[in-house]
Design a protein around this nucleic acid. Sequence first.
DNA 1: CAGTGGTCTAGACCACCAA
DNA 2: TGGTGGTCTAGACCACTGC
Lengths: 266, 266
Amino acid sequence: MSYIRYHWGPSHTMAATPAPSADSPEGATPAFSPLYQQIKGLILQSLQAGEWKPGEAIPSEMDLAARFRVSQGTVRKAIDELAAENLVVRRQGKGTFVATHAEQHVRYRFLKLVPDTGEAGPAQRSILECRRQRASAEVARALQLRTGDSVVQVRRVLSFSGVPTILEDMWLPGNPFKGLTAEQLDAHQGPTYALFELEFGVRMVRAEEKIRAVAADAQQATLLAMPEGAPLLSVERLSYTYNDVPMELRRGLYRTDTHHYRNELN
Amino acid sequence: MSYIRYHWGPSHTMAATPAPSADSPEGATPAFSPLYQQIKGLILQSLQAGEWKPGEAIPSEMDLAARFRVSQGTVRKAIDELAAENLVVRRQGKGTFVATHAEQHVRYRFLKLVPDTGEAGPAQRSILECRRQRASAEVARALQLRTGDSVVQVRRVLSFSGVPTILEDMWLPGNPFKGLTAEQLDAHQGPTYALFELEFGVRMVRAEEKIRAVAADAQQATLLAMPEGAPLLSVERLSYTYNDVPMELRRGLYRTDTHHYRNELN
DNA sequence: CAGTGGTCTAGACCACCAA
DNA sequence: TGGTGGTCTAGACCACTGC
C-alpha cells in the first residue's frame, strides 16, 4: 500500500471525513492534524452518535485499524488519548470500553469532598425540589440557552452518616432532560450522572469548578444545620458532554467542618 | 541483537540497575515493570541527581537509546510519561528540557486563584516574617520530620492591584533551606518555587491541597482588610519533590470576593 | 543543512482473560 | 486456545529549529 502523507487526511475509502475544524478558506495556517488525531476524531464521533453505549466494548484495535485502513499503532495512539481523557477504559485481555459513571470503580468522579478522617461513606439524598422553570439570564448564559428557555431545577441535600453536608442546586437544559422527576431521582441508586446516562443518554465528560468561601444565609443554615453566617464552601460546577457542550450548572454549598475539598496539583 | 524479555530487567551492560522496588524475596507477585518504566526510572534518577539542571536540555532520544541499549521508541515512551507528569518539557526541533518553575510559560503553576473578571495581573509581595523555629507536631508530621526539628517559617501577604488578597504561611524543612532570608524572598522576581530551584536545588514536582471555608479571625481580617468573621478560603498545600518527599507545607487564606479558585475536572 | 522531536508502519512477542 | 490489550523493535519519513 502506498504511504499516505498524514497531512492529507484519511483519504482513500474513508467515508464522510469530518473536516479538520474551522479553517480560513485559503488561510496561511493549514492546521492539519496527524492521522491518529483524525482517527481519534472519528472514534469520538461514533461515541457521540451512540454507536457503542456506555459500558460496552468498542471494536478491537485490529478491527478499528482495518476499518480506518491504518496500522494498529495509529489506532492505539488515538485510543491512548481517549483513555487519558477518561472517555474510554482499557482492560487488558478483555477490550476497550466506553467509560461510564455507573460501573466505574471511581464512583462520584466529580465529587472531591472527602471526610477529614476515615473513608467516604455512602450519601443519603433528599430531594427538596424538582421543577421546570424559565432560565434566568445567568443560567441561560452558562448553559448556552436563551433567557426564558425551559430548564429543570433540582435542589437536594446530601447527608453523610446522617449529617447534612451538601446543599445543591442543579440546572439542566429542559430539552434533553424532558421528563426528569423527583421520584426518578429519589429511586435511583448511585451517581446522578449514571442516571443521566441511562435515562437521557447524556454523558458528562468533563467539568469546570469555581470555588469560593461564603457565609450561610438563614435558609442555607437551616438546611445544613449550621448557624447563620457560618462559612461554607461554594462550588459552582459547569459540566460538559462531548464537543464542549455545557449540560449542567450546579451550585453546591459544602460544610467543611468535618470534610474538605481535596485537590491534586501536577 | 537478541530479544530481551522485558521482564528480565535492563540486563546486559546497563550499570547499577536500581532494583524494581520492594519485593518480597521469593514472593508470589514478581511485580516487574516493562522496559520503558525501568528507563523512566533511570532518567528520573539522573534528574534527581542533578545530572541535568532545570531549564537545560537532556540528551536526545537517540543518545538515550544508545546509552540504555534500547530502541528510540522505548525511550520515547519513557519520556512521554515524564512529560505527562510535567517533569520534562518537549520542544519539537529543539530537544527535551528539564521543567522549571522559572522559565515556564505557565508561571505560578500551583496557584489556582484567578480574578472573577479580566486577566491575572502581577502580584505584589510583602514578607511579614521569616524565621527559624522548632517544628510543631502538626508541621513535623506533614514534613516527615520530628517534633522540634528546625524549620523555617515564612509569612507573607500577596496583593493584586494593591488589594491584599492572599495571606500565606509556609513551613520549610530547616536543612535543605539553610540560609533562607526575608531579603532573599523580597529581592527575588517571579515564582517562589523558582527561587527554591535556583538557590536551594529543590524542585517542587507535585502538590496536594485541602480546601476549606473558614471565618477570618481578628488578625487575619486586619491583614486582608476584611471584616472579622468574613468567610475566607483556607488552602492547605503540601508540596513534594522527587520520590514523594514532602518539602513544603503552606497554608493560604484567600479572599474570594473578587477572585475564585478555579479547578478542572476530568 | 543537520539535528531534534513527531508520526507511521509492520511484525514479533508477552500478559491477561474467557471459554 | 484464541482474542485482546501491552511492549518492543527497526526503519522510514515528516515538521520544526537553528546554523
